[in-house]
Computed example of a mutant assay.
Amino acid sequence: MKQNFTVRQGALDGVEAFLSVAQHRSFRKAAAALGVTPSAISQTVRVLEARVGAALFVRTTRSVGLTEAGERFLLRAKPAFEELVAASDVARDLGQRPSGLLRLSVPSAAVPIVLEPLIASFCRAYPEVEVEIVASPELVDLAAEGFDAGVRMGQFIAADMVAVRLTPPFRFEVVGSPDYLHRRNRPERIDDLRDHACLRMRRSNGSIAPWPFVDGNKAVEAIVSGPLIAHDYPTLLGAAIQGVGLAQVPGPLAAAPIADGRLQALLTPFAVTTPGVFLYHSGRRQVLPKLRAFIEHVKYQSADAPSDGTIARRLREFERANKS
């Protein structure tokens, strides 16, 4: 038979009054300390004693002392009540100012592009917040896994989530190294990928992701093949730089190697544009100050702020590299 483990109603009633009387050894002084009348304190303690089933105080006209039951009750109740008060203070503090642990679920590709400049400046601005970044390609249940928020590309975020833009929309680019392109004909059409070594991504559900393109107004998914399968874009990008094959990666991730000549952008007329990267959270519970502060920081830093528009600057570098 299932047992019902519950705290009975009123189990903590009177404990604060008892502790105050025990500390002051006076109902009058305890009442003054708690801001109530002596008769109210006396009544509260009597109700507590009735519920406990034992007298806790020895009362005389001149003094108040503890019974043996009162001494034992005080020994256990005082540290427990102090812990409850401390727990309330901590919870109240977290609800009033940015502090505590902020846990973020983030794809590894987003860390160097988006989060590095954000985290550095956020930690300087809010030293009482600890930031934990869990890099994972999987779409996790934020509440079930204990995350405050996540970072993902817009097309992967559920409609019931609250999303805050981190980047403008950007293209998915096919890239290859000069060394690789020296050995192979440069692809000019999507069908040309049949003759190329294409580096592929395995999704969290186990399937191999096709390469998306647009041909005019038509969406196209190319099934490609090649020597390497990875679970994250940075690995694919690194292999492309080494000349292993062609890779299709988020444009901002390839911005630096395109700009310095280690990679070349290919098939740009067919590149598909994604909604961009977003910070998202459930929004179902009250947003704690630590997350609210991070959201406001994201909104400021994602814009072209004059003091530190790092994200916007990196995306502009990417656009310049692809126009040259």
Rank of each mutant, 00 (worst) to 15 (best):
K2C: 11
K2P: 13
Q3F: 12
F5V: 15
A11V: 01
F18V: 00
L19T: 05
Q23S: 05
H24L: 09
R25W: 02
V52Q: 07
R59A: 05
T61M: 03
R62M: 14
L74M: 04
R76W: 14
F81P: 00
V85H: 02
D89K: 15
A91Y: 05
A91I: 04
G95M: 06
R97K: 15
S105P: 02
V106G: 04
V106P: 00
A110F: 11
I113H: 01
E116M: 14
A120K: 12
P127S: 15
E130V: 14
V131Y: 06
A135R: 10
E145A: 14
E145I: 04
D148M: 04
D148L: 01
V151M: 03
R152H: 12
M153W: 05
G154P: 00
V162S: 07
P168F: 15
P168S: 15
P169H: 11
R171G: 10
R171Y: 13
R171T: 10
V174A: 06
G176A: 09
S177V: 09
Y180R: 05
H196M: 11
R200K: 06
R200Y: 03
R200W: 01
N205D: 14
S207T: 12
P210F: 10
F213H: 03
G216C: 09
E221T: 07
A222T: 02
I229H: 04
D232M: 08
P234S: 08
L236D: 01
L237A: 07
A239R: 01
I241Y: 02
Q242G: 14
Q242A: 15
Q242E: 13
P257R: 10
P257T: 09
P257A: 09
D260V: 10
D260I: 13
L267V: 13
T268I: 08
P275C: 04
H281L: 02
Q286F: 11
V287D: 06
K290H: 13
L291S: 07
V298S: 01
A303C: 11
A305E: 11
D308Y: 15
D308H: 15
G309L: 03
T310H: 13
A312E: 04
R316C: 00
A321N: 09
N322P: 01
